[in-house]
Simulated assay, not measured.
Amino acid sequence: MPLPPSRSDSEDSHFDDDDSTLERLQKVLASAGIASRRHCEEYIRDGRVTVDGMTVTELGMKVDPQAQKVCVDGERIKFQKKQYFLVNKPVGVVCSNADPQGRPRVIDLLPPWLGRLFSVGRLDESSEGLLIVTNDGELAHALAHPRFQVERVYRCIIAGIPTDDTFKQLRQGLHFTEGKFRMRDVRRIKTNGKSTLVEVVLTEGQNREVRRLFARVGHKVLKLRRTAFGPMKLGELETAAYRPLSPSEVRVLKQYAASDPSRRPSWRKQEVVNPQRKRIKGVGKPRRKPSSRIPTANRGGSRNKRPRR
């Protein structure tokens, strides 16, 4: 039986209750690892969520997850241990957890005994590169929602040779049905014949945003790879491989998500998260090799003279 749409002003209403034990229903679902908060809101609107046996279809309801029975698709939610992984998504794999066409999914790249996981943000089937996979819905929401302005960095091979005016257009933004899309930064890496390797920085991650922007200015994207997401870098992780994030990486990721977007440094100046202390290809400087030269004090004046003792 659905809950009535109108909100009650009585003490029993959980919509505006200030009790510290109550949390918004979508936040509870996200914390339990059901999905990101945005997708949990869709579950509520679709009538897939019940509280104490009653179907909820409105956002804003507050519940006590310890005292009330909250179910999704008839199954009571369970709070799982938070897990965080970095995945190098290959071309031909989709980010959706449920694909009617039966295509390979990102979560299929990880062992099934890890439990319910989902990707943070999306990469389309034709794109590859860095994805964060987790069951932490709150963190996923803070990283993926456009208003949090989390930087995503891509390397793209595009057809043709774009001009500086083209790059200026992309930075200023172009209008689409969903609104105005723009690149925070775009620069040429190198030109090879009739194609160009470029680096793109986005902060919103709209559907196929990079491909649509380049198509609008007359350049088809031939290859697209995400190399960074917030403070996380892909490094040398092999295609279709994954690795768990270390506690220090998770801490950096959460600090980044909670920080003021206007005060974050440019991604090029961010510290590279690399707990193994190994150099990541293309990032940072290699250690200086010890010099093989003889100290000046121990060298002779010429080849025929013996060093002073």
Rank of each mutant, 00 (worst) to 15 (best):
N88L: 06
T166D: 14
D136I: 01
K62C: 02
Q83W: 08
R303D: 06
R171W: 02
D64M: 07
K220Q: 12
R155A: 07
S292I: 04
R103T: 02
R268L: 12
L3S: 15
G102L: 04
C71T: 14
N274M: 12
G218W: 09
Q80V: 10
L197A: 15
L3M: 14
P231Y: 07
T134G: 03
R287Q: 12
S259N: 11
I77Y: 05
L131A: 07
V283G: 04
F118H: 00
L109S: 03
R38K: 14
K289Y: 09
T177D: 15
F167G: 03
R287M: 10
A142V: 00
H145A: 09
T134R: 06
G74H: 04
R187H: 14
N274Y: 11
G47W: 14
E204I: 00
G53S: 06
T191L: 10
G300P: 01
E23H: 09
E238Q: 15
A228G: 10
S127E: 01
E178F: 04
C156L: 06
G300V: 02
I189C: 04
R24L: 00
D99A: 08
M183A: 13
I189K: 13
G301P: 06
R212W: 03
R306F: 07
G301N: 13
L3P: 02
V250K: 01
E199F: 11
R306Q: 13
D52K: 13
T296V: 12
D17L: 02
G33H: 01
Y84M: 11
Y154A: 05
G115A: 08
P146E: 05
G301V: 13
E209W: 04
S246D: 10
A257S: 13
R279G: 09
R306P: 03
Q83K: 15
A258R: 09
M232V: 15
P162H: 01
P290L: 03
I189E: 13
K278V: 15
R279V: 15
Q206T: 07
V252S: 15
D124S: 06
F79G: 08
T177N: 12
D19H: 11
D136N: 08
E236G: 14
E199W: 09
P295K: 03
G230D: 00
V87W: 04
R299T: 09
S31W: 04
R212S: 09
D16N: 15
N298A: 11
P244A: 13
R226S: 03
M54H: 14
N207D: 12
L29D: 04
R76M: 12
V106A: 06
Q270K: 09
L174K: 02
L143D: 04
W267Q: 09
F79M: 11
Q83T: 09
F148M: 06
S195D: 10
K223S: 14
S248P: 05
P290I: 00
P112Y: 05
S8H: 06
T296I: 13
R24I: 01
D12M: 10
W113S: 14
H39T: 08
D64P: 00
R225S: 11
A215W: 08
G284M: 10
L253R: 00
E249N: 11
Q149G: 00
S126F: 08
R251N: 13
V87D: 02
